[in-house]
Design a protein around this nucleic acid. Sequence first.
DNA 1: GGCATATAAGTGTATATACAATAATAAATC
DNA 2: GATTTATTATTGTATATACACTTATATGCC
Lengths: 149, 149
Amino acid sequence: MKKKTEKTTAETIAQGCIAGRMRLLNRVVTRTYDDALRPLGIKTSQLNILVVTAGLGLARPAEISSRLKMEISTVSRNVDRMRAQGWVEVVEDEQDARAHKLRLSGKGKRLLEKAKPAWDKAQAIVKELLGRDGVQAIMSGAESAGATV
Amino acid sequence: MKKKTEKTTAETIAQGCIAGRMRLLNRVVTRTYDDALRPLGIKTSQLNILVVTAGLGLARPAEISSRLKMEISTVSRNVDRMRAQGWVEVVEDEQDARAHKLRLSGKGKRLLEKAKPAWDKAQAIVKELLGRDGVQAIMSGAESAGATV
DNA sequence: GGCATATAAGTGTATATACAATAATAAATC
DNA sequence: GATTTATTATTGTATATACACTTATATGCC
């Protein structure tokens, strides 16, 4: 007769929770990028909003929200801080009085270029940490989750 | 001669940033667990601290911090909220007057058992989302990052 | 045209997180 | 044994995030 080793609920969750591991990994990875970016005065979250905005040229907050799968209220507050830094500017929408668009300022563009080497450094550290397959899994997982490039 | 398509800095980062994808995935995954756990009044972060505490029996905040790779100040505040809910109790340390230990209350233990089906549900959704390889990559990535089971 | 409904964005409130600084106590060193 | 150094945990301050609600405006339908 096979002896079955019972696992407690706590053990099952502690060892198997995908969210727990994902959140842990997120803390470690974000810390790596934040450390590298700190001298530039920008945080990982802000840099990611910055590059999406840059990619769109003129970006509606709702579009940023949708691409980053981030609550629009969160976008709103992050953008507030980025505007306060002078990295992004608001352009009123001609057609729709509710809406507006965001674009990078000159300062924002310059910051982006200055931040690239720091980002490269963090990126290399994390690639080393996760390995080729790990990186690939994150990328395709994010795509499954609805990430738009 | 090969025509090289230049990629802007913004495109390079927007498309390739591991932290960005990881954070996006983290938002989506956490939302899934939070949705499932909402009726129970516990959040993903708190559940993960709860199971680590349960696993240790008597848990020092510094030990939780170390296992979850979470700042001890963050542990401190999360535990405050969990104590306010009556899920964990504080036990003074006999040897060290600076320190104390945490353990689950009866209420905390009952919550954990009640939360298991909701956790199972979220876990299944996310497994489906990430696929076997994706889950494996997160798990081993977290281990590389220093996660202690 | 006028009303119902939908959409865009912001605000209120709460949790999660980190870093810096502090307070208290223990451990180490001289 | 007294002083320095290290450790344990908390508090101050700031950002990131989400959900519920609100405000303003646009769209659809009668």
